[in-house]
Nucleic acid binder design. Structure first.
Length: 483
DNA sequence: CGTCGGTTCGC
DNA sequence: CGAACCGAC
């Protein structure tokens, strides 16, 4: 009998190590790794511009890694079902394996595909490649999904789970003849303007780069993570999020690397350091985000907390544009929004600052913020993005209470104590002394003149008075609070 | 994963 | 008189 052939349908698992679907396919016989670009099948959330940029480079890297094992990546574009059918026919493959996804549109599509494959007599099997705890495995005592993080995470950690990573296969057996593959450029993932110029200086996609970043993080940054992650002026966070989103790394690999490096810390009570503890809790928030998205799929559109469906959001296309382009007149907000546009990223602390500004100071809807992040973040992830926005807007599960309003000035003092971050991203304020940098409208005329700043000309006047805006937001909240 | 305004504490 | 602490929103 000839060696059986398996198609590995790759999606958000663009790696070779700790890759359950690939692993199982490799042990079965010949392997055909396939990526099908099918944005029409993603419902309301086809990949945004920054995500597509990342995807392009991640696919390029994956092909190189596969070629080192004597294999290659087959790229196609179109309807998943049609393409799988074509490939099954062309190659004589008798099985299709993949790692599961948890977004509502992907779940529906995957179900349909699986049923069709099984009906054709093809072996179709899915695996867990991207979560520590799949959403349906964790339930409250009342057999309901969790809506509060801390008990959720306790319940996760109380389960007897071994987070063991699988090694990458050492070789992959090729089919006698490779099916044709679309050249990468024909997926048309890169922007046609030069929007992405600075992405190249900031990021390197692909599992090998992800593993280097992880190693550097656990060796250096993680120790001070609990403090430094709130800093905008240097890299105190892990920056692993885009690698995790595309599955260039699995959470199991991250978990293992953090535990291993923390094991080197002086014995003591075999406890992890505080930085590692806080970091792994962030991995826990990602698990929680997937739990919520799975059990409450409507939250990508609607707030989880009912009363917020009547919240009187304002509407203003011009104000939204000012926020998007970093022209609010609040330097910390503008710095962060410009960093996002230029690099496809901002650290979590400034995400909270700009989100609070949009939803409280401007009272524009969190959905509009979520949509902008979706298009501009290289790590755009439906579960994390939805949770993050509902969290700051105060309308989600275990959210910050709505009355928690970030003060942009205080936040800037903490996140950017010397003003380096603002000076880098808002260069028109660069020579203004730190004392005035966070609130240029309070600077004496001669200070502004000396720094070459003309408010309303070289840099905008503040869009709102923060204290008035805060009061207005709290008043709006009062109206929906008890309804 | 707040802010604000109040009070108390310590020099 | 400022830092530290506390409760309300």
């Amino acid at each position: 009998m000839s060696t059986p052939t398996t198609i590995v349908w790759l999606r958000q698992d663009l790696r070779l190590a700790d890759q359950p679907a690939l692993r199982r396919a490799a042990s079965r016989g010949r392997v055909i790794p396939v990526y099908i670009y099918a944005p029409e099948e993603e419902g309301d959330w086809p990949p945004g511009g920054a995500s597509r940029w990342w995807l392009h480079h991640s696919l390029e890297s994956l092909d190189e890694q596969l070629r080192q094992l004597g294999s290659r990546l087959i790229r196609r574009r179109g309807t998943t079902q049609d393409i799988l059918n074509e490939l099954l026919e062309e190659t004589g493959a008798t099985a299709v394996y993949w790692n599961r996804r948890y977004e509502p549109a992907a779940i529906e599509r995957d179900k349909t595909v699986k049923a069709a494959l099984l009906a054709m007599g093809v072996q179709a099997e899915s695996f867990n490649g991207s979560l520590l705890y799949e959403p349906w495995t964790i339930r409250t005592k009342q057999d309901a999904p969790y809506q509060v993080f801390t008990p959720f995470w306790k319940a996760c950690l109380a389960t007897e789970t071994v987070h063991e990573s699988l090694p990458a296969p050492r070789e992959l057996v090729s089919p006698p003849k490779w099916p044709k593959s679309l050249p990468l450029d024909e997926l048309e993932l890169l922007p046609s303007n030069s929007w992405d110029a600075q992405f190249y200086e900031t990021w390197q996609a692909g599992a090998p780069a992800a593993e280097r970043r992880l190693r550097q993080f656990v060796n250096e940054t993680v120790r001070r993570y609990h403090e430094d992650r709130d800093r905008a002026d240097f890299d105190g966070s892990s920056r692993l999020s885009p690698h995790l989103h595309f599955g260039e790394l699995s959470p199991r690999q991250i978990w293992a690397a953090v535990e291993k490096s923390s094991g080197k810390v002086p014995a003591g009570k075999s406890k992890l350091g505080q930085g590692a503890e806080v970091f792994l809790k962030e991995v826990g928030w990602r698990e929680f985000a997937y739990h919520l998205l799975y059990h409450f799929p409507s939250t990508t559109k609607e707030p989880l907390r009912e009363q917020f469906r009547r919240f009187p959001w304002r509407r203003s296309a011009t104000e939204l544009w000012s926020w998007q382009r970093g022209q609010t007149g609040f330097p910390i907000v503008d710095a962060a929004m410009r960093q996002l546009w230029a690099t496809g990223y901002m650290p979590n602390r400034t995400r909270m600052i700009v989100a609070s500004f949009l939803t409280k100071d401007l009272r524009l809807s969190w959905q509009q913020g979520a949509r902008w992040f979706w298009d501009t973040l290289v790590d755009a992830d439906l579960a994390n993005n939805t949770l993050g926005w509902q969290w700051t807007a105060g309308c989600g599960a275990d959210a910050a209470p709505y009355f928690r309003v970030f003060n942009p000035t205080m936040q800037a003092e903490k996140a950017d104590p010397h003003g380096d971050y603002i000076r880098r991203w808002v260069p028109e304020l660069a020579t203004l002394p730190t004392k005035w940098l966070r609130e240029p409208w309070t600077a004496p005329a001669e200070e502004l003149a000396a720094a070459g700043v003309k408010l309303g000309e070289t840099y905008p006047q503040p869009m709102v008075d923060h204290h008035e805006a805060r009061d207005a937001a709290l008043a709006a909240y009062e109206r929906v609070k008890n309804s």
